[in-house]
């Protein structure tokens, strides 16, 4: 078992509870012991980085400090935006002693342990796409996906900027495809898999966001996908819930089931509905589950 500090982020604790329950149920099967963090807050999404960047840095330093306190070397994230925010802050703190000293002094003033820079932030996707994690994944996914055609959707902030994320080639990523194959599904290829789902501006600029959102859904549908899978709960919310608005705006009958990464693997690993919680999805996942039952 690998002990990792577990950062849920906001959505998995709120509107995407199904991501949290499925991740927790799946982790032991993948050899991951999740150490939950009590005192951490939101990472600020792109929003606090854009509005009050110094506060963003301190908020993320505080998360990293509490993760370090658990003694785990890895802080596991399950959201693209959390991954970028935490990794960006982590790089800054690790590579600039002066900056770290100032931030630590502030942390200590308010009663937070200082951060010494010993945590590595990694998304669940990266922990299981290669090496030991990948081997365990192949074992865990014993039920398979019966050749289901799955469209991987990466989203932005797990690929770009690659100098901060750097796990794979941002223009030719392979990790989701590897996982889909290991689970017994067939990865579908389409150009928009590395593009934006529109979520960051879906409230402030809905029309622009919807013209972004339509691309991956339409392309995946045309390529004959049974479902899409994403490592990001924000992409999930946009692809799943805003698909309703897309239907209304375009008059097209989109019916694309959207799975969280942990749910896709969860299905192949035989998790229960009480852990997968497909009922919480806006677009029905029934076509997928019934294909698997046949």
């Amino acid at each position: 078992m690998q002990r990792v500090a577990y950062y849920t982020g906001c959505l998995a604790a709120l509107s995407a509870k199904e991501l949290n329950t499925s991740t927790k149920a799946l982790a032991p099967k993948l050899g991951l012991e999740l150490v939950e963090l009590e005192s951490v807050t939101c990472c600020g999404a792109g929003d606090i980085h854009e509005a009050e960047p110094d506060y963003y840095l301190h908020l993320n330093a505080r998360i990293l400090a509490y993760a370090e306190e658990t003694g785990c070397e890895t802080l596991m994230t399950i959201c693209n935006v959390c991954t970028l925010n935490l990794r960006q802050a982590n790089w800054q703190l690790k590579n600039d002693e002066e900056l770290r000293a100032r931030v630590n002094q502030n942390l200590e003033t308010v009663g937070v342990p200082p951060y010494s820079g010993n945590v590595d932030v990694r998304h669940l996707l990266w922990l299981i796409a290669e090496g030991d994690g990948y081997e365990r994944l192949k074992e865990a996914a014993h039920k398979g996906l019966k050749g289901l055609r799955i469209a991987p959707f990466y989203g932005c902030q797990i690929l770009r900027p690659s100098k901060i994320l750097g796990f794979e080639d941002p223009d030719r990523p392979w990790s989701l495809e590897a996982i889909i194959q290991a689970c017994g599904g067939e990865p579908i290829d389409y150009p928009a898999k590395i593009k934006c789902c529109g979520f960051p501006i879906i409230q402030a600029r809905e029309e622009v966001a919807l013209s972004e959102l339509i691309q991956p859904i339409e392309q995946a549908q045309e390529a004959g996908a049974d479902a899409m899978v994403t490592p990001c709960p924000l992409c999930h919310l946009s692809l799943d819930a805003w698909q309703l608005k897309l239907r209304k705006a375009t008059g097209k009958d989109f019916q694309m089931p959207i799975l969280h990464l942990s749910q896709l693997i969860g299905v192949a690993a035989g998790l229960e509905e009480s852990e997968l919680k497909f009922k919480r999805h806006v677009v029905s996942v029934d076509p997928v589950t019934s294909k698997l039952e046949v």
Partner: peptide, 16 residues
């Protein structure tokens, strides 16, 4: 903007 500028020194050191 200074909140972002202060981190550029460290980010500039990252090798892909």
């Amino acid at each position: 903007a200074l909140g972002i500028v202060q981190g550029e020194h460290a980010l500039g050191r990252i090798e892909f």
